[in-house]
């Protein structure tokens, strides 16, 4: 209990306290208590923060939706028996093991518009080259793609575990009643998988909302502010501008956002209808 208090509660409480102050970490002036002024600025005054919130949510939705679709598809594939399954499954999990920063550096090189391999691959399929992270229109999606590449296997793993624990009886009954495999998937597999899926999505959503390393390494929030999520912005406020109080209030806002998203997802898990 004491340990929890020291390593969890104290930092959160301190951040909350800091968020009520105006304090520049490098100045001689002491922190000054300004009440809720930082939050007022966040909610009303700061367009850059509002855009960052919308961007963070959109990034999360795009990345997690793609990961869920691909992850479930891969899980269904690997749930079947076929030659080489074990090897392929192990290979599929590899991206998860890699360090995000290292991956980001590799993708920086792959995304290079004239020298990178990504545009070469695109041209092989007959498409015209993309700007990837080098244009404000595509940068956020290019980053989401990195996230998808790395974290789809997590959803696949959790779904696979869910699939392995499914009972056989409902399928036998459905088969006797003449249900097609597609009907069996929609009416039996998916509803039974839901608890596992919600957990997987929850993990991923919390993580995606907090994504920092790949964005920091690959675009630093650019071009312009096209990929500046809440975390990037608050990092800038705290460690580039040394504006600790204001950054703390953003951290609290991000915390609230993550909590909110988690509560909604947990509620979805408990409720009986989709």
């Amino acid at each position: 209990m004491l340990l929890v208090a020291v390593i969890i509660v104290y930092p959160i409480a301190y951040t909350g306290w800091m968020s009520l102050q105006e304090w520049f970490a490098s100045s001689l002036t002491r922190p000054r208590f300004i009440g809720l002024a930082n939050y007022g600025k966040i909610l009303l005054g700061d367009a850059r923060f509002r855009e960052a919130v919308a961007r963070t949510i959109w990034f999360t939705v795009v990345a997690v939706a793609a990961e869920t679709l691909l992850g479930v598809a891969m899980a269904l594939l690997f749930n079947r028996e076929f030659w080489g399954r074990g090897l392929l499954r192990t290979l599929a999990i590899l991206p998860m093991v890699a360090t995000p920063t290292a991956i980001a550096l590799v993708f920086v090189m792959m995304y290079h518009p004239t020298l990178g391999v990504a545009n070469y691959l695109v041209s092989v399929v007959g498409l015209s080259p993309f700007r990837w992270t080098y244009s404000s229109q595509t940068a956020l999606y290019a980053l989401a793609l990195v996230d998808v590449w790395q974290w789809t296997p997590l959803i696949m793993l959790i779904t696979l575990a869910g699939l392995a624990s499914l009972p056989r009886e409902p399928y036998e009954a459905a088969h006797l009643d003449g249900a097609s495999p597609r009907q069996a998937f929609w009416h039996i597999t998916l509803p039974l998988l839901r608890p596992a899926l919600v957990v997987a999505i929850l993990f991923r959503a919390i993580d995606a909302l907090k994504t920092f390393d790949i964005i920091f390494v690959m675009t630093q929030g650019g071009p312009a502010n096209a990929t500046e999520t809440i975390n990037l912005l608050l990092f800038n406020q705290a460690f580039s501008y040394f504006n600790m109080g204001y950054a703390s209030s953003m951290a609290v806002a991000l915390f609230a956002l993550v909590m909110g998203a988690s509560l909604i997802l947990i509620k979805v898990r408990r409720s009986t209808t989709w």
Partner: peptide, 16 residues
């Protein structure tokens, strides 16, 4: 400029 120059740091500039 080369395509994508909008996000070029010195690293990409020097590489090009």
């Amino acid at each position: 400029g080369p395509p994508g120059v909008v996000n070029f740091n010195w690293y990409e500039c020097s590489a090009a």
